[in-house]
Design a protein around this nucleic acid. Sequence first.
DNA 1: GTGGCCCACGAAAACGGTTTCGGCAAGATG
DNA 2: CATCTTGCCGAAACCGTTTTCGTGGGCCAC
Lengths: 332, 332
Amino acid sequence: MTLSDVASRAGVSVATASKALNGRAEVAQATRERVLRAAGELSFQPNALASGLINGRTRTVGLLTDELGGRFAMSILLGAENALGNEQMSVLLCDARGDAIRRQHYIRTLLARQVDGFIVVGDSNEVGPSLTQDIPVPVVYAYAESTDPRDLSVIADDEGGARLAAEHLVLHGRRRIGHITGPDSYRSARDRAAGLRTVLTEAGLDPAGDPLFGEWSQRWGRHAARLLLAARPDVDAIFCGNDQLAAGVADTLRDLGRRIPDDVAIVGYDNWEFFAADCRPPLTTVDLNLERLGATAVKHLYAALDGNPGSGVIRQPGRLVVRESTGPAVHR
Amino acid sequence: MTLSDVASRAGVSVATASKALNGRAEVAQATRERVLRAAGELSFQPNALASGLINGRTRTVGLLTDELGGRFAMSILLGAENALGNEQMSVLLCDARGDAIRRQHYIRTLLARQVDGFIVVGDSNEVGPSLTQDIPVPVVYAYAESTDPRDLSVIADDEGGARLAAEHLVLHGRRRIGHITGPDSYRSARDRAAGLRTVLTEAGLDPAGDPLFGEWSQRWGRHAARLLLAARPDVDAIFCGNDQLAAGVADTLRDLGRRIPDDVAIVGYDNWEFFAADCRPPLTTVDLNLERLGATAVKHLYAALDGNPGSGVIRQPGRLVVRESTGPAVHR
DNA sequence: GTGGCCCACGAAAACGGTTTCGGCAAGATG
DNA sequence: CATCTTGCCGAAACCGTTTTCGTGGGCCAC
């Protein structure tokens, strides 16, 4: 199916056929239609190869991730794929599995395939080394922050999300708020703890004990809840670093006969439906808005492709999802 | 960075440079090295355009999914991406979101990008319409079965997996085995129930009541467990259609004072670590081996690319993961 | 020493496409 | 009627690459 086939079938020269198919101006409407019809009849694949790609864009972006299996990359990928699809772009997916050699290999591969740009997807807002110097096309970091401030990183606003959660608790009259979360080696854990602290300070409240850092598991949630209740039996709300922890905390509270939310309110984080919506009771939690984060990253990649590269860190706000674990809504 | 640049830097003709870079035979070793070095120094992108793609393969496959957000597509994608990466192939990802129009659009897009083949990833072993007639390149269905028996589908062996689980329970001396599972509109639910029934029949046992079909949620697991215990208080094992259900069942059993596994053993399905490993007690469950399923699909796609297309249905066996919910291991 | 052979290489053609540019016809203008 | 403009089209040049095919030279056998 070559262009000349189309041209001869349409009774024009290859040059005219080329122009017609590429939507250039200097071709009569009737002629264009003839060519398009001929192309359709021969099911000619108009673009795709050779110089079509040489000068222009390939309309393809490379998406580089380290932990596709993780829970977060997926949502970002989904949002990015959607945003790209809307602009008729495609995404070449590569999972480096956290291996630097694999990553370099994939960067080379994607460059060889002439991608127009890169989206580097992290899995925890963590700060990681900039890859930009190896890549001659625009790069945007999503859910990961590049060490190089000249790069553009789009991350989730963990501190802001934690503030949403904390303000919600304070607004509902909770005064002795504990915090159970993951390892303090995680930036997310630290940022969320910081957000909570800020709100408590502003409200003139003391936290119910120091944040309990541990691991991101239901098991630790269950255990930490016992510790917290033993140390501070008067606690009336627990803000959890994620929904798994919250589910574990809820388990323990039930075991100890505390009512949720009457005695103790719980707020989770991540809005991981399987845990949050199916918990007893369903969890109030903070949605990271990861799909939107992916879309935001794509939007900025477009800007960079159009010659307007950004830089710095963009914090994508989260969204409080209110369910039963903090009681009925309060009217301000 | 044109090939002639590389050629002149290496002191050879473009023809020789082309041959050297493409690994053709009729070029001396020393010359080849010179060319490769020159290409490296100029960071020349060897292939990517024009005839490089025209005659040969693009080394790209399209991966079409309907529910990337679901829990299963991810693992398959991961396995496929890995298998493809090992062969220096790349994957163009498209999520049709269950919309037929989007799917057709993506098929056209991917064909325009000259993909060498397609992998169509489903999300539940379900039988779906064949897309092969629209696609002039090889197609393999993964975790989905095409209606056209001439197509090649790789699916998870739900019946076999259920047999593994049931045999495990029988081997541990359980005699009154109930079954709680998802909607019977799901093939997975039906197949797993059938696998259980087969084993019980072979062992000469009667099932503890009919399978309780409901929904794939922890909530239904909790509710159905109450129903089952009310109807058959003597039940000594419950096989659950997935791990969420199993977690819910475990909740209820604990609430009702039944010990796990002493009084009642539980087996889940899916080996969804977050639920299975973190359950109280950790769940014995069946791993779908989805990553391997993805890799298997890729393997068969390669065969098809090499001119050996397969057909029919390949059932990828699952794997029993034994944890505490069925008690300590038994020596045969 | 001479003939034959094979191997490595390069000139040139092919490939499938785009872009430039000149020319032709039709309509506008004088 | 002559001239000018304008809009379409196609011949030809071009692009970066692969492929064909001819050639020169080294090597070995005789």
